[in-house]
């Protein structure tokens, strides 16, 4: 079927198989490979993107379901050379190591901060429960999200 999605502010219109998952549509049809696939059971959150502003796991959404929607991936986050505060905080606080979970983690964090602009550390942990990271032990990710919210990070 023909699927029209606004991706990172740009209108895309493509013909896809009906069963195409949004994550494969982004990666394989549109060439936006930042969004990763880490599992096949909606568990890991590596594929998290925003659909109409809310975080979703793009491995569990058909591209057809996103027809007409606006999708944001990590590639659409920075304003030119200026990093989004969450991106900047992930770098500053070493919230990533291998980087594989990172695009999904950042998008989940963006969505979290949208809903809760001044989260506690516990709020951040709970809010990121749908995203798995094998490298960081999450500590610095929590630091990063707290910092991105403008709050001080204890050291």
């Amino acid at each position: 079927m023909r699927v029209t999605i606004e991706v990172n502010g740009r209108r895309t219109e493509e013909e896809v198989e009906d069963r195409t998952l949004l994550v494969h549509h982004l990666r394989d049809t549109l060439g936006l490979t930042a969004t990763n696939i880490g599992c096949d059971t909606t568990s890991c959150g590596a594929c998290t993107v925003l659909v109409d502003g809310e975080s979703v796991k793009s491995c569990t959404v058909l591209a057809a379901q996103a027809d007409g929607a606006a999708v944001t991936t990590v590639e659409g986050l920075a304003e030119g050379e200026t990093l989004h505060p969450v991106q900047q905080a992930f770098q500053d606080h070493h919230g990533l190591q291998c980087g594989f979970c990172t695009p999904g983690m950042i998008m989940a964090a963006v969505s979290l901060l949208e809903a809760n602009p001044r989260p506690t550390r516990e709020d951040v942990r709970t809010g990121l429960e749908g995203n798995l990271c094998r490298c960081t032990g999450y500590h610095n990710i929590v630091d990063a999200v707290v910092a991105a919210s403008g709050q001080e990070v204890p050291r």
Partner: peptide
């Protein structure tokens, strides 16, 4: 239910 992403969908 599930996690935030699941609850969004």
């Amino acid at each position: 239910v599930g996690d935030p992403q699941v609850r969004h969908r």
